[in-house]
């Protein structure tokens, strides 16, 4: 396929994905804004005022980066898993599979769609945070890089989930039983310095911890983890999941008989 045709195909999938989540904005963009807004209000302002300082910052300032990252992770994952599975379920994925679009473009198109929703929700939540605190971003480039890499990792994970899924239940199991515990135990609400050494060691195995802390470092300039190591892990996760997703797509897992 010629390079310009490949680009047009990628752009077509991306536009279709963005059109989908903006068409159903009441289901995709508003709920995370309300949920995270409630977190800001209850944990940040009401309870946070009694907690005092965390990691050297007001509690509300400490949790804002984690909550933004939580919204990015959940929405990037949900967008790709639900959209790709819906395409499978309605069989409209066949539109792409019978066309000459290469597998890696199909993957990139859906992942870019997931990243677009992750970033869009991240921006909405960031804008909402200004009602509760005044954010000053310490490292703008790093902050953007972490958001993009994190949303890519979870879009890829959502894609793999959708490939294997046979029912709508199959795409809700991972977010409920894997993603949510990883996020809540990934240092969104607390610094791992509060944990005993064994708890810190267990937390170090949680990839979300690195994402949240690198993002927090980008905004506040403080982190529980080594930033270079965290970025390296994000790149390795992205590359590894991309390779797995592409392999499954080429193999036709869940798509071709």
């Amino acid at each position: 396929m010629q390079a310009n045709h490949i680009y047009i195909a990628f752009e077509t999938i991306l536009i279709k994905e963005v059109r989908r989540f903006t068409r159903i904005w009441l289901q995709t963009l508003v709920p995370p804004a309300i949920t995270i807004g409630l977190y800001f209000l209850i944990f940040g302002n009401l309870i946070g005022g009694r907690i005092g300082q965390m990691g050297g910052y007001n509690y509300v300032d400490f949790i804002v980066p984690g909550l933004i990252m939580m919204a990015v992770i959940q929405n990037a994952y949900a967008n790709v898993s639900s959209s790709f599975f819906s395409n499978k379920f309605q069989r409209c994925i066949e539109e792409i599979l019978v066309s000459p679009v290469p597998n890696y473009i199909i993957l990139l198109g859906f992942v870019a769609g997931g990243m677009a929703r992750g970033v869009a929700v991240g921006l909405i939540v960031t804008a909402m945070s200004f009602f509760f605190t005044s954010l000053h971003i310490e490292h703008v480039f790093l902050t953007l890089l972490v958001v993009l890499l994190t949303s890519m990792v979870f879009s890829l994970a959502g894609f793999i989930n959708a490939l294997y899924a046979n029912t709508f239940d199959d795409i809700s199991i991972i977010p409920t039983f894997v993603l949510t515990p990883l996020i809540y135990l990934g240092g969104v609400f607390y610094s791992i310095e509060l944990l005993p050494s064994f708890g810190q060691w267990i937390s170090a195995l949680n990839p979300v911890l690195y994402m949240v802390n690198t993002f927090r470092y980008g905004i506040l300039g403080t982190s529980d983890v080594n930033i270079v190591w965290a970025l390296f892990m994000l790149v390795v996760f992205s590359a590894g999941l991309f390779a797995v997703a592409l392999y499954l797509l080429r193999k036709g897992t869940g798509l071709r008989q």
Binding site: H5, I8, A9, E11, T12, E95, S99
Partner: peptide, 13 residues
Amino acid sequence: DIVITQAGYYGLR
């Protein structure tokens, strides 16, 4: 949109 999207998969925009 369905028809235009399909055109995009074939490199038509």
